[in-house]
Design a binder for these strands. Structure first.
Lengths: 235, 235
DNA sequence: GATTTTTAAATTGTATACGATTGATTCAGA
DNA sequence: TCTGAATCAATCGTATACAATTTAAAAATC
């Protein structure tokens, strides 16, 4: 995410309303991003600058800026002289995303166990509980994903490191994409809630090893299912 | 770094010659980046689009694209309607960079111990040796920094994960900035070389815990010196 | 002399125009 | 009918023009 001098909002929290307020490039960025994440723009689809301009009623300048920023987040690919593509969804990509999350988030959990304040841990406990998912109800599933992202983001925030937050946010965004497309869309609410609470417990006990181990299991567990589903879908 | 479909070059390796070849936005990006990293553009300095255009003999479009990309790497800050600033150099920023490197690179080392192939480890052993630094000779110091970055990047490459590589590259770039400005510019060649060899040994022994521990020490050791120097410089 | 207001210059924000490159379609030839 | 080349349309790459905003400087007031 591009750095601004003013406080940087969390993507998870703002992506919904962002597309109506704020300045032009930000709005365009948020809109295209949302369309890619929720599958409105299919993986691998070509992104025509002109179409996006007409759709969003803006010129090419802010559209190109938005596409460049999305390129930095690996949500779109860029090929010189050929334009932009929505990033394809592949099992290999999901595997790499899992590795990235494993590396970053497991260690984040460990460090959080050493550093998080009591009030931060309290906030995490509140965020640990995952909402119920009603089968067939998209809304409830979206809420589930957002609640999960929120917990992971809140945990990352205890480290107080904006670039780190951006990395985790970006990974979580990408992580949700298959699910939004109906691939590997299993929400084991009980298990996720338990993992989150276990992590909170580890923080309270100031046990970095436990925090790291639980987080590793949580990341791997969730990812394996998605990777498997992607393989089965022939991706 | 922006994703292209074609293989992505390492910044450390190409930053020198990049500024003459390649396409326009890439060239502009590489040039401005180099100027910020080596201190030619001072930390906190305002980056006027017009000046950069005149200097590089291009229009504002590629310059703005480059500045946006540098914003994503936290090398420039962006304030709406006020333009871009070269990121200031602060002790707090260095602390956060240390945390980021600690989180990412320590776990990269651990994972590398589990996954690196024999030939990758051989390549790392070759890259472990750091060149001598002749006091007062900038060239030799630049070579020292590049050799260090190269080792860390090569280690990261064993994970085979482009976004991860980009994160480490970006962190290494920022990490070098104070040194290029003459702040905390101590090159303990012997110590660095030993750390690198210890990591290689850990990989050979397939010992993720040792790899992680050595890397943690290496990152913290190097950073502490720089943070201390920044504090003493009143930043 | 300090502070506020006004005014003007400079800079960024956005749109658009033009040239370069690419990819697709058509037409000719085998 | 299939292959290949040539042409054409569409899209991207870059530059530039104009509008909106800000900063800073100068003047006026306290």
């Amino acid at each position: 995410m591009r750095s601004t001098i003013d406080p940087k909002p969390s993507l998870v929290e703002i992506s919904a309303d962002m597309s109506v307020s704020a300045n032009l490039p930000e709005r365009v960025y948020a809109t295209i991003k949302r369309k890619i994440l929720n599958g409105e723009i299919a993986p691998g689809a070509r992104l025509l600058e002109k179409s996006l301009c007409e759709e969003l009623k803006v010129s090419r300048t802010p559209v190109r800026e938005a596409l460049n920023r999305l390129g930095n987040e690996d949500l779109v690919l860029f090929r010189p002289h050929c334009g932009f593509l929505a990033a394809p969804l592949t099992a290999d990509g999901a595997r790499k995303l899992k590795d990235l999350r494993l590396i970053v988030e497991s260690k984040v959990a460990a460090l959080a166990a050493l550093r998080a304040t009591k009030s931060q841990i309290d906030a995490l406990r509140d965020a640990a509980e995952m909402p119920v998912v009603i089968p067939g109800d998209d809304e409830s599933f979206v809420r589930f994903c957002q609640a999960n992202s929120r917990f992971h983001l809140l945990l990352t925030r205890t480290i107080d490191n904006q670039p780190l937050e951006n990395i985790v946010m970006s990974a979580l965004d990408q992580y949700q994409r298959p699910a939004y497309l109906g691939i590997g869309r299993v929400s084991d609410r009980t298990k996720a809630t338990k993992c989150h609470h276990d992590i909170v417990d580890a923080l309270l006990e100031r046990d970095p090893f436990k925090a790291e181990a639980v987080m590793s299991g949580h990341v791997i567990g969730g990812s394996e299912r998605i990777i498997k589903a992607l393989v089965e879908a022939g991706l």
